[in-house]
Amino acid sequence: MNYSIKNYIQQGKEIVEQKLSSLYTDTNIPENLKASMEYSLLAGGKRLRPILLLASYHSFKKTDEAKTLRTAAALEMIHTYSLIHDDLPAMDDDDYRRGALTNHKKFDEATAILAGDALLTNSFELIAEDELLTAEEKVFLITELSHASGPEGMVAGQVLDMEGEMSTLSLEELEKVHEHKTGKLISFAIIAGAYLGNATETQLTHLKKFAYYLGIIFQVQDDILDVIGDQEKLGKPVGSDEENEKSTYPNLLGLEGAKNHLSAYTEKALQALQEANIEQSYLEQLLYYFGERDH
């Protein structure tokens, strides 16, 4: 697969979009609920988590990613549910997402909550009914995904984030928030792809370290872009973190300090990839992409 990383991302995005758009073509879901689910699920986005899963799989197997696609779709469904719920008045109270009305503004709060619930629960059904996976693979993936998205994973991160609002977090506390809120699903993407590609236990251990650093890198760059990013490319106002008095890496470390932190973690992530015996891979290229992206 001789593609540049941008072509690889675009190809992966098209594969994921095709899978997502086929999920609800023939169902008994009530029409309004289905419309609400698809409104957010098919609203675009970078699809970086499922693309990471594909890239991790391709680090071990270069072709035949069919057995990864339902798991990749399930991962994006959980990410989408979290965005729907994050936007609600009880949480971040946002009116727009990716330049369009948020789900509860397009429909209503009750429908948005139920659409999020439906995407979350349906994601596990998607994996459980995957005919290309063995029973052992299904149990592993469902266990890992429930842990990554649940009370010790993404949900924990959201709680820690809310508790940290309007207060100054230490660097350690800030990293704990993002390790859970953003990092756990990123970690699942890496581990799930590698597992399906038959990575060894030793490789999975090193890839967990890589995934941890990658999750922090993603958030550090997010925080940097909120200071110096292009509002048109980002699709959201720049400077909102400071306006909302959120603890961020530039706030704690200064802009140059945040950039240095990103560079240091990039080196640690690269070291973890080398220890996993995975070099010159799409994972390595995505690592740089995460740290250098402009939106």
Rank of each mutant, 00 (worst) to 15 (best):
E175L: 03
E243C: 00
Y282H: 08
A35H: 10
E137F: 07
D93M: 13
E292I: 00
L207M: 08
E292Y: 11
H104L: 10
E201N: 14
A211W: 00
G183D: 00
I190N: 02
K62P: 11
P89H: 13
A73I: 04
I51Q: 00
S187D: 09
N7E: 15
Q231W: 02
E201K: 14
K46V: 07
M37Y: 03
L33H: 05
G150V: 03
K106I: 00
E284L: 11
P30R: 07
K138R: 15
T168Q: 15
K209E: 15
L253Q: 10
Y57T: 04
E137I: 09
N7A: 12
S40Q: 01
N122F: 10
Q10N: 13
G164E: 11
L53K: 01
A199E: 08
A55V: 01
H178Y: 15
L33D: 07
K61D: 10
N32M: 13
L253C: 11
L160M: 15
Q219E: 01
T80C: 02
D26K: 14
V159W: 05
A90H: 09
L286V: 02
N277L: 14
Y265H: 15
N251G: 09
A118M: 13
F290C: 09
E131T: 11
E38N: 14
L214Q: 07
E131F: 05
A100I: 14
E175Q: 15
T200S: 15
L119G: 04
A258T: 11
N198P: 00
K138A: 09
S21T: 10
D130S: 05
K61F: 05
S59L: 08
K184N: 09
K246Y: 12
F107W: 04
F140I: 15
L196S: 08
E65M: 05
Y96C: 06
S123C: 05
G153H: 04
A135I: 15
N260S: 13
L88H: 06
S170P: 10
L23G: 04
I127P: 00
L169C: 10
I9H: 01
L69F: 14
D94K: 14
L207H: 02
E201S: 13
G235C: 11
R98P: 02
S281H: 06
T168A: 13
L253D: 10
